[in-house]
Structures are given as structure tokens and as C-alpha cells.
Computed example of a mutant assay.
Amino acid sequence: MTERVKDTKEMIRQMRPALRDGSYHFVHVADTELAARAMLMSIASFAEDEGLSLVVPAPALTELGLSDEMPMRCITLQVHSALDGVGLTAAVATLLADNGIPCNMVAAYHHDHAFVPAEMAERALELLQDLAD
């Protein structure tokens, strides 16, 4: 793995946004048995006071019996951003917001991920590629 990047301008320059295949859904699961099954299928989770929030691939929705409210696409920022880096998330979210594209950012250990409505994903990808250039 490459060295972590901390400088704001360098994180943006190196972000190499890539659109992941498929669509994903943010869901809430309060039932512990369903949550245990859903966790195995999720790509991200967060324990909130109201229950477990998960990001699951679209095919898992039917199997889990969950509703299909808003299909999202995931754009992975492929720079290995430092956990204490400042500004990458703000730059991405601000650019997308300025262009009317909703964005849910998920920061993981190696990369940041921008989830945008499926129908806006290609435009969001173009904007982020232009920002990196």
C-alpha cells in the first residue's frame, strides 16, 4: 500500500475517483436477528442510538426483505488519505453540493467513499475527475 497522504492539495490531486460497479442502499435495521444477517452482506455499518445503519449492495435488499428507497452508487477516492488529513471530504462534498448532487461520505481506513444517487453518479465522477486534474 502506498504511503498515507495528509496534505489537502495532494490528497485532492491523487484521489483518482473510481465508480464502483452496482448500486448500494443505506438501510436501518433494529431487529438483532436481521441485523446479524445483514451485517454479513454489508460493505459498511454504523451503530446509532436508533439501531444499526448499514450500506448494502442492491441484491441483498430482496434477500433481507428491506425496502429499496434510494439506489446510490459509490465513488471510491483511491488516494490513501491519512486519517488526520484535513480537507478532502470537504472539497468533495462542497463540489458535489455546488452542482446539486447529494453526497454521503464514508471514510474508511485506506480510502474515502462518496455515495451519490445512482442517476447522478456519472456526472459526479466527471466533476471529481476534473477537480483532481
Rank of each mutant, 00 (worst) to 15 (best):
M120N: 14
A58Q: 08
I75W: 07
E122N: 07
D84N: 08
D49Y: 12
L83T: 08
P17T: 01
P71M: 04
V5D: 15
D133H: 07
M11L: 02
G87N: 06
S67H: 05
H111A: 11
A36N: 09
V116F: 02
D7H: 11
A35D: 11
P102G: 12
L128N: 13
L61A: 07
S45V: 00
D68R: 09
V56S: 11
A90R: 07
D130S: 02
F26K: 04
E33M: 06
N99M: 02
I75T: 10
E126L: 12
A60R: 05
A35K: 02
Y24C: 08
H113F: 00
L52G: 07
E48F: 00
L83A: 14
G85Q: 04
M70F: 06
L131K: 03
E33W: 02
D84K: 04
G65A: 12
H80S: 11
L66S: 10
Q78G: 10
R16E: 12
I12L: 03
V106K: 04
E10S: 06
R37S: 15
T8I: 05
D133L: 10
K9T: 08
R20M: 15
L77S: 10
L61F: 01
G51M: 01
L77V: 03
C74E: 12
V27D: 15
V29W: 05
S67F: 02
A47F: 07
L64C: 12
L125H: 12
H25G: 06
A132L: 04
V106R: 10
T8S: 14
D84Y: 04
V5W: 03
H110C: 02
S45W: 04
C74H: 10
T89S: 10
H111F: 04
M105P: 11
A30S: 13
T62N: 15
L64G: 13
V86T: 11
A114C: 04
D21E: 15
L64D: 14
L77Y: 12
F115P: 02
K9R: 15
L83C: 12
A118D: 14
S45P: 03
E10M: 03
K9M: 12
E122A: 14
L96W: 01
D49N: 10
N104W: 06
D49M: 15
E10D: 13
V92A: 11
F26W: 05
A60Q: 09
T94Y: 09
A35C: 02
M72G: 09
A30V: 04
T2I: 11
A121L: 04
S23Q: 14
N104D: 09
A58E: 15
E69A: 12
R37A: 14
R37Q: 15
M105I: 13
